[in-house]
């Protein structure tokens, strides 16, 4: 697999006020490497620079410093060629108000140089794919937020991009629409094998869609890795709660594979393990060896949100890069 997006030392400061006296340093030396066909998530709270980073990678914004290569092309020098191969879809989508959904697609299709028949077929396919049939002749400003978002995704696929940038694609949508949009993104990405770079502050979304995730805070990437590896890295494991009768062999429990910590209170034992689903069977087998009777087992899995909170807390601690 080749590298689809490579960014090195990206810095960006916004200036405002008279003579640019007010300065806001948004990105402070971002390094990023995304493989072709990968879904990469940039996760972080509002205002940390996610959209700025995405805008820089999609050629809408120039960084103050740094190098960017998209599909091997220098995006700062060769922006026009890069723009042929990428596209963007943003949450709170905005398109030309008085044009209908279909007319908007035709307009942007023409901007990518698609000719008549090819464009018409592609647009009809996209309208079908995103279930926009009933809304295709409605002006953009009269579409619901969910429909606008679907239109935005449809527009972003007009040029069959090799790299797709999704900026908070489900922000402001109700949960059921968000789930549908996420499923559509996943299906499309798998079918087309394109590289997707997604920003979100929704942990579930990142966990559901992304192969790898980077945590962005204060203009810096705190760490990068798969959802699982990130959970392991900060040792916020899954919690196995066991209600029991008898005596637990504590020496063996602490030595068991994957056990990070444990605590016993009365007849309830809480064991923290790195991967609950993987370790549960062995744990039960181990504990069942003595005179212990297991009455009830519950598995509580850590979600990415807890991981993010930990990362945010431990900003200054030494957290290495994890693949």
């Amino acid at each position: 697999m080749g590298i689809a997006v490579r960014a090195e030392g990206i810095y960006k400061t916004f200036r405002s006020g008279w003579w640019g006296r007010k300065q806001k340093e948004v990105l402070k030396g971002i390094d990023l490497q995304i493989e072709e066909g990968e879904v990469f998530g940039i996760l972080g709270p509002n205002g940390v620079g996610k959209t700025t980073l995405l805008s820089i990678l999609s050629t809408l914004l120039f960084p103050d410093q740094g190098k960017i290569q998209i599909l091997g092309m220098d995006s700062l020098r060769d922006g026009h060629r890069v723009r042929e191969k990428v596209n963007i879809s943003s949450g709170n989508a905005n398109f030309l108000w008085s044009l209908t959904a279909k007319e908007n697609l035709h307009f942007y299709g023409m901007l990518y140089g698609l000719n008549g028949n090819h464009r018409a077929k592609k647009i009809n396919d996209l309208i079908k794919l995103f279930s926009l049939e009933e809304h295709q002749d409605i002006p953009f400003d009269r579409l619901s937020t969910g429909m606008k978002q679907r239109l935005s995704l449809a527009k972003s696929l007009l040029n069959d991009p090799s790299v797709l940038f999704l900026d908070e694609p489900t922000v402001g949508l109700d949960p059921s629409v968000s789930i549908t949009i996420r499923e559509q993104i996943q299906v499309i990405q798998k079918e087309r094998g394109m590289t997707v770079l997604l920003t979100t502050h929704n942990m579930k979304e990142a966990e559901y869609l992304c192969h790898r995730i980077a945590f962005l805070k204060g203009g810096e990437i705190l760490t990068t890795g798969t959802a699982e590896s990130l959970k392991r890295m900060i040792r916020v494991g899954d919690v196995v709660k066991i209600e029991f009768k008898g005596t637990i062999l504590e020496d063996e429990l602490i030595r068991a594979d994957g056990v990070i910590n444990y605590g016993i209170s009365g007849n309830l034992c809480e064991i923290i393990v790195d991967d609950g689903e993987r370790r549960l069977g062995n744990l039960i087998a181990l504990l069942s060896q003595g005179d212990l009777q297991i009455k009830k087992v519950t598995l509580g899995q850590t979600d990415l949100e807890e991981v993010f909170i930990e990362f945010a807390k431990n900003n200054d601690s030494d957290m290495g890069l994890c693949d």
């Binding site: 026009h80 723009r83 042929e84 398109f95």
Partner: peptide, 18 residues
């Protein structure tokens, strides 16, 4: 101006047009 009023300026400038 139409793009400005529709807040769709970025979609025009991310397309490969001169």
């Amino acid at each position: 101006l139409y793009d400005l009023w529709s807040k769709s300026l970025k979609h025009t400038f991310i397309a490969p047009v001169h």
